[in-house]
Design a protein around this nucleic acid. Structure first.
Lengths: 370, 370
DNA sequence: GGAGTTGGCGTAAGCGCTTACTGGAAATGT
DNA sequence: ACATTTCCAGTAAGCGCTTACGCCAACTCC
């Protein structure tokens, strides 16, 4: 029993205990599903809880049990929020990230964890502070591509378990990503060998994104190896957004450049923009120019033509990242720095129409498993 | 000074204090940017902090200051995660929600708040528990459309500040939504009067979604008022997903039904599916059937034909919701239940091509501001 | 130069939980 | 009937912070 005054504000465990005529320990035991309290006691407690509308305070719980059951997810916000329009079209480039987060969330939930999401602006001068604040609110951090330098990551990994997504191999902490190289090589082979295209191009994503670098490199080298030509250079530098795809194509056409026979894009959204801009100029996809994406976002199959792309197990990547992080969190010993691993999840080439393949006419059953 | 043993694990404020040769109070003051500590002291503390890689514990901070600086965001996850495929295409219906969350996040960040996001499965039997756990981890809750019954909302609002998104007017807590009625009426007028269509249809979203109900009702009644016909009924019941749009059109065509001259969809994603399915059957949009959406997601302008839709200030809706919640959190008095308000943000009809309007040929400058 | 003032900093009391420890009642054994 | 075990439930000690309070040194002022 406790003699604390009845709080006027939100009820605490003391209020519940008093009302149920038990000690706070018993209330806590009921809350945590221990089996000690016998049914009669348990019922009294439960009744008091619902009468008071009691909600146990997560902070107190976390402090006491040394576990917040929260994982932080940090991703990059590209455009500042101060430069005029509060909400630029930035958002369209975040679909992929949102999907990953969904994957993390679903798995996290099974373990009783919730997600603390936070976007950061790369050029924010208070970045280290922001990340610290976030870190303080969770048990571990999942960092999306390009939110922090390797040094920065290493530094905060001293204190909190950290896992990166789509980071470069050999980073300071464990990393989860899709297999970019294999499927981009396959894509190159498909375009060059199966379709016979000889003059291709790769529209890049952020220049400093490891995913983008590997995709571009794998594609170009395979195209070359097969005797094809792969256009490259600043004219082909995009930023993962549909808008950049549109701009690049428009620019090229405005300059009177001869377009390549096929354009492989760093991701689906860029491909969406490219297809749009091509159509704008009366060019047919894939008749005049073949276009491919990467990611296989849900909308890819609803485009006309349906987008040939590489399927990444997006949500699984998120899920895996959480599992890795979770095992670090629950590990008895602090981070074992030799345990740093690079998890690579398989990807798969999805041949649809935008590469020049005929519309899918296989029976539905077959289509589903392919 | 404190005599606590040097912790072997993550450093605490005590470790910092010892190392800097000051008391924990001073460390705390430095951490919180108080101006008491004089420069010399401050520097010693800062040095100790960075040497130790100290990160203040959010839980302890929250417990002590009675503020977590976290807002919870709960949205509905449509498909269970247990029925076979872990990740169904559910995700494609969440774009809208993600955008709202982004709006919340950006504004929240300015006030030092982070977002705790959590999806819930409606038929989860432990729903109240899940919501409680989440509530315990934050200072307030923003609930997306259809995650909890009005009674459920009222119940948890007893304990935590709550704001709903896209809820029905007259709910138990303050609500933020777009103006569905005005713009859907305008859409009806545009389709019937400007284009002269007489036979139209509305493909519904979730039957229990207030947004959907108002959109359908406003559209149908305006069409009728103008002497048009608006098809309705179970055949036109979708669920906000592209897939449902595809299914509905396919079903109708399979039944040999005569399609209406124009189809207004409950949201952009459904429209995407509808356009896709129409194209699949060789039907031209808008030539044979006009199609419109709602939301104006970024991809809407990159479709062929460009989608005529209603622009909702999506991120602003999120931002507003946060602001309302924030003022509830910082209010001295607990929730003033007469202060419940329904915030309606303006929407706007965006005429592009899918309704039958000619491709936009206005100069770019003009296009931007329209 | 002593009394009053100021400002920097340390002490200690919580914040609302979890849980090790402990006491006492009930159940069991002989 | 008494000793022993078992089981419930209560007591109290933290978890790592913030902050009211108060002390002491360094000032100011007549």
């Amino acid at each position: 029993m406790d003699a604390r005054p009845t709080s006027g504000a939100t009820p605490t465990i003391y209020d519940v205990a008093r009302r149920a005529g038990v000690s706070i320990a018993s209330v806590s035991r009921v809350l945590n599903g221990r089996d000690n309290p016998r049914p009669a006691t348990r019922d009294r407690v439960l009744k008091a809880i619902s009468e008071l509308g009691f909600v146990p305070d997560g902070a107190a719980r976390a402090l006491s049990s040394r576990l917040k059951q929260v994982v932080g997810v940090v991703f990059r916000r590209v455009y500042g929020t101060d430069d005029g329009g509060m909400f630029e079209d930035e958002s369209e480039s975040l679909l992929f990230g949102d999907q990953i987060n969904r994957g993390i969330e679903i798995v996290a939930q099974r373990r009783g964890y919730d997600l603390l999401v936070s976007s950061v602006n790369i050029d924010e001068h208070t970045l280290p502070n922001r990340i610290m604040t976030i870190a303080g609110k969770c048990d571990g951090l999942i960092l999306h591509d390009q939110v922090l330098s390797p040094a920065g990551i290493a530094s905060i990994a001293r204190t909190v378990p950290v896992v990166t997504l789509a980071g470069a191999e050999g980073g300071p902490v464990s990393n989860v990503r899709g297999d970019n190289a294999t499927s981009m090589r396959e894509m190159a082979r498909h375009l060059v060998q199966d379709h016979g295209y000889r003059r291709l191009a790769y529209i890049a994503g952020h220049a400093d994104s490891p995913d983008n670098i590997v995709r571009g490199r794998s594609f170009a080298s395979e195209v070359h190896a097969l005797g094809g030509e792969c256009l490259t250079g600043p004219a082909w530098q995009g930023d993962y957004s549909a808008g950049s795809g549109v701009q690049i194509v428009r620019g090229l056409i405005a300059l009177g450049a001869t377009l390549p026979r096929a354009i492989a894009c760093a991701n689906d959204q860029t491909a969406l923009g490219v297809i749009y801009a091509l159509a704008e100029h009366g060019l047919d996809v894939p008749g005049d120019v073949a276009v491919t994406g990467f990611d296989d976002l849900p909308f890819a199959r609803h485009l006309r033509p349906q987008l040939t792309t590489v399927r990444q197990p997006i949500q699984e990547i998120g899920a895996k990242a959480f599992e890795v992080l979770h095992s670090m969190i629950t590990a008895d010993s602090p981070q074992d720095s030799d345990a740093v691993q690079d998890f690579v999840l398989p990807t798969r080439l999805i041949r649809r129409e935008s590469c020049g393949c005929p519309p899918d006419s296989r029976p539905a059953v077959w289509r589903q498993i392919s």
